[in-house]
Structure formats: structure tokens, C-alpha cells
């Protein structure tokens, strides 16, 4: 197992700062603290070469878990092993095997071309020059970096910068990748590029990937397995398709014209009807019947899809909240 997490908890003590002048004056003497359970008794294991999506609403504890796994945070309780090491010791041997990419924070030197950061990382990680050249050549080809790495970072676009960030993070050929929102703010084409690259890297180097993303497409495209946490607690761990099936067993059937309006209503709940194209929600059990019915009338222009993962998540978190109203969503301190 590359990653083993047993009973992980991470609690923060935060100062409560109430609004208003009077309260601000009062807090000079009396400070009130709250304990925030950012991560609460979470366990899972990830095998070498797996690609796992890490999902949850904002403040669910995803980033905190990532930081514990990469060694930036001490766990409050629980046992964590990554690549055979206890992460928080941050032993050089451990750090050379992992990487953390945070989409919202950058490691590239702002005023200098990315190639300078590569030179720095090569020296820091003690990468052999010949191997570094080879890795850079490989990354340049896969990510399309040609011409970018010699321009000052501040002149690069967001997408170009993210590609260069990835290259900087992978220069030492880590075998475990923690990717926290690596595609945030990028356009769809760039997201696809990054996604393809991550899958390619995973297959080429048998690397383990743990990924968080706000874009469900990333997760659907990359991660056969998902771990879902909410309010610091683990609420699902398993196959993505199985999750979708249990949460929303309905399929979305869409077609163009051909079916009289009164019949459409009988097929299932109409989700969307625009530009002559109709989409209805159909329970799995009735799928065969509906499809053959539509095929009789509308011909070949028919599509069957899973409901979007966003809907699945929304339902998952709503059910969870309803089941345990006592646990408020926890936001870790800034």
C-alpha cells in the first residue's frame, strides 16, 4: 500500500472574533476559542498506481488531509504512512518520492523564467543532470512547454503557468502525487491537457495519484475510485460508478423531436427541453422500455447518460446533512 491512513484526526483551535466595536474591545481581555474538527477519524488505503478522486464540499477537510499526507501538518490523532514513511518527519527520502501541487499557490519564481525554478529544484532534489535533461525533455513534449520555460513567469498565462508548475513539481519523478485543485481557473481545453498528462504520467511511472477538483469532469475522466468526505468525516470510499448508481439510479435519456408531447410526459420526468431536444430522467428498471419506445419514433439520434456527478454530490451531501444535523460544516482557520 502506498498510502495508509488509520483513524486520522486533525483539530484546530481558532480564535472567535465577534463583530462590532464593543465586542472587539471586549475581546482584548477575553478571547474565546473554538475547536474545529477539520478531519475526524478518517481511514483509507490507496495502492500503488491507483488514481483516486478526493471529493467534498468547501471546508470538508480535503486540503487538510492532503497537507497531513504530504507532511505539512502534524496529525492530532491517528496513524499515517505514505511511501513507507511517516509524512510529518519530512525525511529527505520521503520528500523525494512525493509531490504536492496546489492550484492556488505557486512555487515558480515570479520574476524569472520557469527554467530557473527547474535548476533550483534539480539542485534541491539532487537530480542527476542527465536524468533531469531527459525528464525535462519528456515533460516538455507531454505538456507542450516548448518556448514557455525561458519566459519570465510573470509573463505567462494562467494555463501556461500551471503546466510549468506541474513540470517543476514532477522534475524529481515522484511516485506519489497529491494534486489539490490542479485545474482551478483553467479553460476546458487546458483542463483536458492537464488531465491527459496526469493519466499518462500515472501509467508511465506507475505513480499513485490523489486528486481534488471542483470540476467533476476531472474526477470522472481520471479517477475510477473516489473518496468522499464531508464535515471532516469519510462518507464514501469506492468505485465511482457504483456511487453514482446507488445515489442516483436514474439515467438521462435525450432525443430530438419525433415523440408527441403527451407521450414524453409518460416516459419520465422532463429535465430539459430546448432547441427541439428533450431530456427525460428514467429509472434504470424502465430504461429498456423507454429506449425502445423512443427508437421507434425518433430514429437514431438518441443518447443515454449518467446524471452529472454534481447532482450526485449534491444529493449525497444533502442526505448526509439530514442524517446528522448536529455536525456543522467545518472551515479550517486561514
Amino acid at each position: 500500500m502506498t498510502i495508509e491512513v488509520a483513524g486520522l484526526s486533525k483539530h484546530f483551535r481558532v480564535h472567535r472574533r465577534p463583530p462590532g466595536l464593543a465586542a472587539a474591545v471586549r475581546s482584548l481581555w477575553r478571547r474565546r476559542y473554538d475547536t474545529v474538527k477539520a478531519v475526524d477519524d478518517v481511514s483509507f488505503t490507496i495502492a500503488r498506481g491507483e488514481r483516486v478522486g478526493f471529493l467534498g464540499p468547501n471546508g470538508a477537510g480535503k486540503t487538510t488531509t492532503m497537507k497531513v499526507l504530504s507532511g505539512l501538518l502534524h496529525p492530532t490523532a491517528g496513524a499515517v504512512r505514505v511511501e513507507g514513511h511517516q509524512p510529518f518527519r519530512r525525511e529527505p527520502d520521503f520528500l523525494r518520492r512525493i509531490t504536492l501541487v496546489m492550484g492556488q499557490k505557486q512555487q515558480l519564481l515570479w520574476d524569472l523564467p520557469p527554467s530557473e525554478t527547474y535548476a533550483l529544484n534539480r539542485a534541491v532534489f539532487g537530480v542527476d543532470p542527465a536524468q533531469a535533461r531527459q525528464t525535462i525533455a519528456e515533460l516538455t513534449e507531454l505538456l507542450g512547454l516548448a518556448g514557455l520555460t525561458d519566459k519570465p513567469t510573470r509573463q505567462l498565462s494562467l494555463g501556461e503557468r500551471m503546466k510549468c508548475e506541474l513540470a517543476a513539481a514532477l522534475l524529481h519523478r515522484p511516485t506519489t502525487l497529491f494534486l489539490d485543485e490542479p485545474t482551478i481557473g483553467l479553460d476546458v481545453a487546458m483542463q483536458v491537457t492537464i488531465r491527459d498528462f496526469i493519466r499518462d504520467y500515472n501509467q508511465r511511472h506507475d505513480a499513485t495519484v490523489l486528486l481534488t477538483s471542483h470540476y467533476m469532469d476531472d474526477v470522472v475522466a481520471l479517477c475510477p475510485r473516489v473518496i468522499v468526505i464531508d464535515g471532516g468525516r469519510l462518507i464514501h470510499d469506492g468505485d465511482l460508478r457504483a456511487l453514482v448508481k446507488t445515489m442516483l439510479p436514474d439515467k438521462l435519456v435525450s432525443f430530438t423531436g419525433g415523440v408527441p408531447a403527451e407521450e414524453v410526459a409518460r416516459l419520465g420526468e422532463v429535465v430539459k427541453a430546448e432547441g427541439g431536444r428533450t431530456t427525460v430522467r428514467v429509472p434504470e428498471a424502465r430504461l429498456r422500455e423507454v429506449v425502445s419506445h423512443v427508437l421507434d419514433r425518433a430514429g437514431a439520434d438518441l443518447a443515454v447518460e449518467d446524471p452529472p456527478l454534481e447532482d450526485v454530490m449534491r444529493k449525497l451531501f444533502k442526505d448526509k446533512r439530514a442524517a446528522a444535523p448536529a455536525a456543522p460544516p467545518a472551515e479550517p482557520p486561514p
Binding site: L72, R90, L95, I98, L100, V124
Partner: peptide, 18 residues
């Protein structure tokens, strides 16, 4: 403040030196 210090900590060299 910006959080980029995390990257420094993840480098296998003495953080004070870096």
C-alpha cells in the same frame, strides 16, 4: 502569508538554509 512556504517545506533540504 501566501501559503507558498509549503513548497519550501516539501523540499528535501534544510528549510532555514533555503
Amino acid at each position: 502569508r501566501s501559503g507558498a512556504f509549503d513548497y519550501t517545506l516539501l523540499r528535501p533540504a534544510d528549510a532555514q538554509f533555503l
